[in-house]
Structure formats: C-alpha cells, structure tokens
C-alpha cells in the first residue's frame, strides 16, 4: 500500500518533469518570441529588440536557456512573466481559486447527472427514454463548450435575465460556466456508466442473483451498480484533464478569472515562464487526482482492498 503510493508519487514527478520539458521545447522551437509578440509592427528598431531580448536572456543558446530555467525551477523559482515582470507563482496562485471552484462544481454536475442518467438509461435500454438519454450524451460530448456556453448566455442572461453572463464574483456567476463544462462531463460519464451497467447486468452472477429471487431493485442498486462504478470513477479522474482544458475556453467565453485564461494569454504572448507554471500546476493536479481515484477503488471494491491495487481485477 505505502509502496504503491511512493511508487506513484515518484512516477508523478516524472510525468510533471516530462510535460514541463516538452512544453519548454515546443515553445522554444515555435516561431516568434515574447518580445516580438508584444511590440507593434515597426515600433522598435532591430537593435532595440536585440537589447530587450538580451535583457530577458532570450538570445542565449538552447542548452543555456534550458539549464537556467530548469535549474531555477528545481529550486522552486518559476521566474517572472516575460510580459508583465510579475513573479509567476503568486500570479498563478491568485487565479487558482476561481478555476478550482469552476472545476469542482462542474465535476459535481458531471458526476451527479452522468451517473443518474447513465443508470436510468441502462435500466430502460432499448426504449424511448434510453434513446433520448443517449442523444443527450452524444450532444454533451460533441458540442464544443464555446457554443453551448454562448447558447446558455443567450437563454439565461439575454432572454430570461436570470443569471449574469460574465464575471467571477459570487455563486451566481459560477452557474452558467459550470453548467457549460458540466454538460461535456455529463456526456462522457453518462456514456461510460451506461455501457458498464449494461456489461455488468449481462454477467452470470446477476442471473444467479435473480434466480435466488432477489428483487430487481436490490439486484440493480446493491449489486449491478456497485460493480459498474469503477470505470465511472476512473473516468472522473480523467475528467480533471478535461476540466483544465475546458477552463481555457469557458473562462474566456464567460469572462472569468482563472488559470485557463492566464494560460491562453501566456501562450499567445509566448510568455514561457507563465505557461510552464500553469502546466506544472495542472499536471501536478492531474496526477494527484488520479492517485486519489486509484486509492478510492479500495473503498468501492473489497477485492482490490484485499489484494492491493494493481493486482486486483
């Protein structure tokens, strides 16, 4: 158990470093840099641009920039934004709460709605209800978040005037963005839960339970659902990545504060230290949540609890 956690944490470190190196290389080799992208065309002379680049260390060879950057990072220093000269870590931390609020609310919506609709649809498979829910699921996974976000604004803000279309102050501004992200997650979880419930109820032990004369309700809720839950929980862990990616779009559409928007601006401005900071943060969060998800299997499945993770079914 402890060995497992230590192993996973070591692997996490590898994942975070790997993603960080990858992002550094991509941004280094992409054309353009932080200086050119913030200066209007022709407002600074070539000499001046060279000076500013030199001041930021952008003219150093690759291995040197790489060494300086990662040397600092391992000492916990993420450096300063190339655009605003603010230190990166406080800048990110300032925006984390807003994104976390959004991600948690939409995960709750996805999990709640997704499991409910998935189970419901599986129990009524083949009927009109099933067909309707499956369409909803398909809608959830296929509609781009920026589109559904704008539709929600048109309906609930412009037409009905119930909810504010923008901002990040208070619970009311959280509802539409988390619904937008929640629709995507609901679609994913719903489809996963539906198919895994269907798989489970075809298994022989369900037939045995029915043959024993157990009520259909008990068969479903006490036995089928519990067995079908593991894939759904795994999906929940992966949903964190989905939420982080979705935050970039949703935070922009709903004019919210958050690290998704910081990331989008930083990529547009080639602000490497800020991009790196956000990537390391979200990679770390992703790894952590998935570790928790793996540990939670033990709560759900007693077989895993007995044999340990990785060796159970």
């Amino acid at each position: 158990m402890l060995k497992f956690i230590v192993f996973r944490l070591a692997a996490s470190l590898f994942v975070i470093c790997g993603s960080s190196v990858l992002v550094f290389c991509i941004l280094y080799w992409l054309p353009g840099d932080a200086v050119l992208s913030r200066l209007a065309l022709g407002t600074a002379s070539p000499e001046r641009i060279a000076e500013i680049r030199h001041g930021l260390g952008l003219d150093a060879p690759f291995y040197q920039q790489f060494g300086v950057y990662f040397g600092r990072m391992f000492r916990g220093d993420f450096g300063e934004s190339l655009v605003s000269a603010e230190p990166v870590l406080p800048k990110i931390m300032e925006h984390v709460p807003a994104t976390l609020a959004l991600a948690l609310t939409s995960t709750a919506i996805s999990a709640g709605l997704g499991v409910l609709l998935g189970v419901w649809s599986a129990f009524h498979r083949g009927g009109a209800v099933d067909a309707a829910v499956r369409i909803v699921g398909l809608f959830g996974v296929s509609m781009p978040a920026f589109w559904s976000g704008i539709m929600l604004i048109l309906l609930f803000s412009v037409r009905l005037g119930w909810l504010p279309p923008m901002g990040s102050d208070g619970v009311r501004t959280l509802i539409l963005p988390s619904l937008t992200l929640g629709i995507v997650g609901t679609g994913l979880i719903l489809r996963m839960v539906r198919s895994s419930v269907l798989d489970t109820i075809r298994e022989p032990f369900i037939v045995t339970l029915r043959a024993k004369g157990l009520s259909e309700r008990a068969v479903m809720y006490r036995h089928a659902l519990r067995n079908a839950l593991i894939p759904a929980v795994t999906m929940l862990g992966m949903l964190v990545g989905e939420m982080m990616a979705g935050a970039v779009v949703v935070e922009t559409v709903f004019a919210r504060q958050g690290i998704g928007r910081v990331l989008a601006d930083a990529i547009a401005g080639k602000d490497l230290p800020v991009v790196q900071g956000v990537v390391v943060f979200s990679a770390g969060l992703y790894v952590l949540v998935n570790l928790l998800v793996d540990l939670s299997y033990m709560l759900i499945d007693p077989r895993i609890r007995r044999t340990g993770i990785g060796r159970g079914t």
Binding site: F146, G149, I153, P164, P165, V253, A255
Partner: peptide, 8 residues
C-alpha cells in the same frame, strides 16, 4: 468573447 460582451 464577442457574444458574451453583447449579451452582457
């Protein structure tokens, strides 16, 4: 976002 700005 344009649509959000107009919606606001």
């Amino acid at each position: 976002e344009e649509a959000t700005r107009i919606g606001s």
